[in-house]
Simulated assay, not measured.
Amino acid sequence: MARALTLCGSIRKGSYNEILRRHVSGKLVEAGAEVEDIDLGDYALPIFNEDIEAEGMPAAAVALAEKFAAADIVFIASPEYNSGASPLIVNTISWISRQRLGQFRKPVFGLGAVSSGKYGAIVGIGHLRDSLLKLGALVTPTLLGIGPARDAFDETGAPREEAIAKKVDQQVRELIHFSRGGI
């Protein structure tokens, strides 16, 4: 059974990206994966600074890196900030990348983003994909760029548009197919 982590690059109440994370998490469970949902608000990390690192790796960074290293699948829903990934995701990856546990080489990564604009934050997750690839990660070909946010999900958290629902299903199939855990 594949072990999956899902996390969101926004800890804002009512985050559309959190709605996407929950939806993908449910789809992964339906596909047979064992899923752990990560709330980055539970992992307090200072802004990355090598001086802090020299004093000792923050416990939250160690815990997250170990979770990534043990996972077969990691799904990240991240809002777009100034055409890039959210500061929360950038900082988290900065801390996790400083450890040598295979945390980016073992799992397959799926990326998604919801934005208020029509293009669904695809530029931001494109930059996130590039960063992960440079760290040695395998990222699914399908990227979930969803927008406009206010019309994206129904009251159950499912995508309103059939084309988006199909794209989510495609990414979940890719995550399962490319995962090292298999199902």
Score class of each variant (00 low, 15 high):
8 C>A: 13
11 I>R: 13
14 G>Q: 07
20 L>D: 12
21 R>V: 02
21 R>D: 00
26 G>C: 10
31 A>Q: 11
32 G>I: 04
32 G>N: 02
33 A>G: 05
42 D>F: 00
43 Y>P: 13
44 A>P: 08
47 I>G: 00
47 I>S: 09
50 E>L: 11
50 E>W: 08
52 I>R: 12
52 I>G: 10
53 E>T: 04
53 E>Q: 13
55 E>N: 15
60 A>G: 04
61 A>M: 12
62 V>S: 04
64 L>R: 09
67 K>R: 11
67 K>H: 00
71 A>N: 06
71 A>I: 04
74 V>N: 09
76 I>L: 04
78 S>A: 09
79 P>E: 06
82 N>V: 06
84 G>H: 14
85 A>F: 09
87 P>S: 15
87 P>R: 13
91 N>Y: 07
92 T>D: 05
100 R>D: 14
100 R>Q: 15
100 R>V: 03
104 F>I: 05
109 F>V: 04
110 G>W: 00
116 S>N: 12
117 G>Q: 09
118 K>Y: 12
120 G>N: 06
120 G>C: 07
121 A>I: 09
121 A>Q: 05
123 V>Q: 14
124 G>Y: 07
125 I>T: 03
129 R>C: 01
129 R>L: 00
129 R>P: 01
129 R>F: 06
129 R>T: 01
130 D>Q: 13
132 L>C: 08
133 L>D: 00
134 K>L: 08
138 L>Q: 08
138 L>S: 08
139 V>C: 01
145 G>Q: 11
148 P>V: 12
151 D>M: 09
151 D>N: 14
152 A>R: 11
153 F>I: 05
155 E>K: 15
160 R>W: 08
163 A>F: 13
164 I>N: 09
165 A>D: 14
173 R>D: 14
175 L>S: 12
177 H>D: 10
